[in-house]
Design a protein around this nucleic acid. Structure first.
Ligand SMILES: [Mn+2]
Ligand SMILES: [Mn+2]
Ligand SMILES: [Zn+2]
Ligand SMILES: [Zn+2]
Lengths: 146, 146
DNA sequence: TTGATATTGAAAACCATTTTCAATATGTAG
DNA sequence: CTACATATTGAAAATGGTTTTCAATATCAA
């Protein structure tokens, strides 16, 4: 948990006429120190331990808030859960997702990104965001499957 | 509606020990003659007109069946509905999706596809399928927005 | 300190999709 | 052709992740 993130949230809240609360700070801290690509329920369970009073709805609400504030990225993979990951910078990345064990590998490929822009340009399209997900078997699961 | 599609479905059903029904044939025919990227409800409404007796659940079930039979592709864009499109061949394509008007533009880009394989290889990953969606403004909506 | 109002937790509601169930249709064996 | 085992159907209820409601509580500017 960078002290910076809590400050960043406070600034966003103040700027929007919203209020800083202990729950929001607590959830943010657990969120940052927990693993990546967490679902609301996974985060809720993690938050519950140190802060038993926190409600389910508040975790959902805070996660959406963090996304609006630019502190989290919202991801919808094919497992039916919305997942969130802490976003420290403006860097972008895409994902490889193992259909066997659920492992998620992140990657960046500037050539693919550039070609996406080519496709968009050819179609008079202005890209706001995109989603690239490769589903299949990770290295471990390929070995085990033999 | 190619006569072929109905036959293809019959063959799949027979091979699986399933039964051909008038509902399945009717839904398939409307599905093929309707536009692309239809949701279950959209298809249900279209099927209802010529075949008022057909139930909601049957449309859902048949759409999943068509996907299993290889006659339809299932797509989950970011609007909360599962959409289906008739699949005549094994060709693959990806999508540009307008966040303003909902327009969906299809594209193929073999260079991007190849680069995806490169990424996978570098990560010891075996790709089974992938999803590439570019969200933004289509040409029309860009003009109107000015 | 006060007061307007944003936020919270618990429970209910939402909503696309799936499942249940009794009635009906299909296909095969005889 | 008939009978029968069972796959399928339509309607309604259930499911499950997420959102909303609401009364109680917390925040913060005045
Ligand atoms: Mn990620
Ligand atoms: Mn398509
Ligand atoms: Zn794996
Ligand atoms: Zn548009």
């Amino acid at each position: 948990m960078r002290k910076n993130a809590v400050e960043q949230l406070s600034e966003y809240l103040a700027g929007q006429g919203l209020r800083s609360t202990t729950q929001r700070d607590q959830i943010l801290q657990v969120f940052i120190s927990a693993g990546r690509h967490l679902s609301a329920e996974e985060l809720y369970l993690r938050v519950k331990k140190p802060h038993p009073g926190i409600g389910y709805a508040t975790v959902y609400r805070t996660l959406k808030l963090l996304a609006e504030a630019g502190l989290a990225d919202e991801r919808r993979f094919e497992d039916g859960f919305t997942r969130y990951e802490y976003k420290a910078s403006d860097d972008h990345h895409d994902h490889l997702i193992c259909t066997k064990c659920g492992a998620i590998i992140e990657f960046e490929n500037e050539r693919i990104e550039a070609l996406q822009q080519d496709v968009a340009r050819k179609n008079h399209f202005l890209v706001q965001n995109h989603k690239l997900e490769l589903y299949g078997l990770c290295g471990d699961c390929r070995k085990k499957n033999r």
